[in-house]
């Protein structure tokens, strides 16, 4: 299953909730959730922990738009919109943690 999160983990609980409930699978960070891919934030330890259970992706255009395409947490893969489409196609279901 693909989990899609679009909010910064430093301001909202959506990513926390996703990581609490979801059992694993693919996790895609889009929009403001791409800040969760940055190394050095307060959330990094939780993200590193999540990487043990999830394959984590961040949307490149959203990273670039926010100036945070550099210094990503090791193990997080970067995808473009085509990669986003592939992730949706590859998983039987997807859930947006709005």
């Amino acid at each position: 299953m693909l989990h899609i999160v679009n909010k910064s983990p430093l301001g909202h609980a959506a990513l926390d909730s996703c990581l609490r409930v979801a059992q694993g699978g693919d996790l895609l960070l889009i929009e403001d959730a791409v800040y969760a891919a940055s190394a050095g934030t307060l959330f990094e330890p939780l993200m590193r922990d999540a990487l043990k259970r999830f394959k984590v992706y961040a949307l490149q255009p959203d990273l670039e738009a926010r100036g945070v395409a550099v210094h990503l947490i090791e193990g997080i893969a970067v995808v473009d919109y085509g990669g986003f489409v592939d992730l949706v196609a590859r998983n039987k279901t997807c859930q947006s943690w709005l």
């Binding site: 899609i4 679009n6 949706v88 196609a89 279901t93 997807c94 947006s96 709005l98």
Partner: peptide, 9 residues
């Protein structure tokens, strides 16, 4: 549809 993708807040 084979997949339903939601974009929201």
């Amino acid at each position: 549809a084979d997949r339903l993708v939601t974009f929201g807040d």
